[in-house]
């Protein structure tokens, strides 16, 4: 991999005595989707604001495709499209007018605007609504307008701050599909903050867990989950099991503990639910043991979050709201 799209080196942001972002460093590769996961007040919004030139960096540096955001802010601004948390498109203007005004702010030429805006409306499935006032759109459609607005200057990096907060479940899925499609078609680097585990799991190549201003973990969702020891469990009920069934279960790849639940039911705790389940199926087939029921509870990102931060994400959210 050549030069990363985003390079964050020892970034620190202090507000008086409060350190909002405390020595955070990581790279985001070109074309990668990185999720910043953490509760409110963890510092993810501050990090995003530093990256998008909205707040000055106390120390350290952030470089976007070779442009330092402090030394060369205007060039850095051109390489990022920002979709803020609050929906800020003007409800009394049409979709097209909203996009056109932002394109002009980015200095996109008239010819470019004529080409880019219809393309973007096509991309976010709003081509037939281009003259509709934004105020008449549903929440999900509005979010799509904002996504299109963030792309009017054809940036290389897209930054989304909690893109689905406040949306209903259908609109959330809608936005996820839209983002997946944009990523596929445009090879964009995406940085997205969220406090929804399922969102991070579904959208991101890698996840950075931020807590109290610090980066506490950074890896793929799969690797993060498997880094949490023994949190996956398999519960199975068998028919006609042999007498030495328990040692055979213990010998399965990845198995940590085996527990008899009675009535031919067993719980196997594993650190790799996928591998152990496959091995179990092969074992049962070979031994001609029927599997009456099988339930796999795999490690969730919630478990990962608790493991790395020592507290649940929901607890932090509740504490932040209180």
């Amino acid at each position: 991999m050549s030069e990363p799209a985003i390079r964050i080196e020892h970034a620190v942001k202090q507000y008086g005595a409060v350190t909002a972002v405390n020595d955070v460093s990581f790279d985001v590769g070109t074309g990668e989707t990185l999720g910043l996961l953490g509760p409110n007040g963890a510092g993810k919004s501050t990090l995003i604001r530093m990256l998008t030139t909205l707040v000055p960096i106390t120390s350290g540096r952030i470089v976007l495709h070779g442009d330092d955001v402090t030394l060369n802010p205007d060039r850095a601004r051109l390489s990022i499209g920002v979709i803020p948390q609050a929906m800020t498109s003007d409800t009394d203007l049409s979709i097209e007018e909203n996009l056109s005004i932002y394109a002009k702010l980015y200095g996109v030429s008239r010819e470019q605007r004529r080409k880019v805006i219809p393309e973007l409306l096509e991309l976010v499935n709003l081509a037939d609504r281009r003259t509709s006032l934004v105020g008449t759109l549903s929440g999900g459609m509005r979010r799509r307008v904002e996504i299109a607005r963030g792309l009017v200057h054809s940036p290389l990096i897209l930054v989304l701050d909690e893109p689905t907060t406040g949306l209903d479940p259908v609109s959330r899925v809608d936005v996820w599909e839209m983002l997946t499609r944009i990523k596929r078609e445009r090879q964009l680097t995406i940085l997205v903050t969220t406090h929804y585990m399922d969102e991070a799991d579904r959208l991101c190549d890698r996840i950075a867990i931020v807590d109290k201003g610090r980066l506490v973990a950074l890896d793929t969702p799969r690797a993060l989950k498997s880094s949490v020891p023994g949190a996956s469990s398999i519960e199975a009920q068998f028919g006609d099991e042999p007498a030495d069934w328990e040692p055979q279960l213990r010998a399965l790849a990845g198995t940590l503990t085996v527990q008899a639940l009675g009535g031919d039911s067993w719980r196997i705790v594993t650190d790799d639910a996928g591998t152990t389940t496959m091995a179990l199926a092969e074992l049962a087939l070979g031994a001609k043991v029927a599997i009456r029921s099988l339930a796999v509870t795999s490690t969730s990102l919630d478990d990962v979050f608790v493991y790395y931060t020592g507290h649940g994400l929901k607890d932090s959210l509740a504490a932040a709201a209180a």
């Binding site: 802010p73 601004r77 948390q85 609050a86 003007d90 702010l105 980015y106 200095g107």
Partner: peptide
């Protein structure tokens, strides 16, 4: 208040 300014400030204006 609505955050429209943030939208302006992330552009090279």
């Amino acid at each position: 208040q609505r955050g429209v300014h943030e939208g302006y400030l992330v552009t090279p204006i």
